[in-house]
């Protein structure tokens, strides 16, 4: 049945996959942040005698979280072309043309990512309605997100593949889902 599945490797990734990957990234980054924050606070208290978290909890936490989240998205995209969440869901960030995204553009993408949340996530609508399924931070960084399952082929489920195959045969002049 594997051969009956349609190959979508390299295609633009859709909203559901990217949303799930984003949730995974937020969970992983948040967990790592808490662990790192506790470890850093312990080190600062024991070595330098500074109780930064207790003294300025809001400022300290917000600053640390911002820096950490930027580093998480920037470094992982610049080094591997994917974050942990994107790796789990089988996604890769490339340039708009399909090349490896530069370190600078990766940083730009990480900085502009929070702006996609503004106005109730208006910046993410481009993933659903855009021609190239790009969010606001993708447009800013000149990036795109594609399906990439590594050595394995990214595939559609069998029922949808079969539906598309039938549609392409019987209604070749009709617009298909893909």
């Amino acid at each position: 049945m594997r051969s009956s599945r349609q190959d979508v490797s390299g295609n633009y990734a859709g909203a559901v996959t990217r949303l799930l990957a984003h949730w995974v990234d937020l969970a992983v980054a948040g967990l790592l942040f808490v662990i790192g924050l506790v470890a850093l606070d312990y080190v600062l208290q024991t070595i330098a005698g500074v109780d930064a978290v207790t003294d300025n909890p809001e400022v300290w936490s917000a600053t640390a979280a911002s820096v950490w989240l930027f580093l998480y998205w920037w470094v992982s995209i610049a080094v591997a072309g994917k974050t942990i969440g994107k790796a789990v869901l089988g996604l890769r960030v490339v340039s708009r043309e399909g090349e490896i995204l530069s370190s600078f553009r990766s940083a730009l993408r990480a900085i502009s990512l929070p702006f996609s949340y503004l106005l109730f996530g208006f910046g993410f609508l481009g993933i659903i309605f855009g021609r190239e399924r790009r969010a606001l931070h993708d447009v800013v960084a000149g990036s795109a997100v594609i399906y990439d399952w590594g050595p394995r082929t990214a595939e559609l489920p069998v029922p949808i593949s079969a539906y598309l195959a039938r549609k392409s045969v019987t209604e070749s002049d009709e617009p298909s889902l893909s």
């Binding site: 859709g14 089988g90 659903i128 399924r133 990214a154 559609l156 489920p157 949808i160 889902l177």
Partner: peptide, 14 residues
């Protein structure tokens, strides 16, 4: 899991 997500992607985009 990825296949299910890709299928939903296609439905939403369509």
């Amino acid at each position: 899991l990825r296949r299910i997500a890709v299928g939903l992607d296609l439905v939403v985009y369509g």
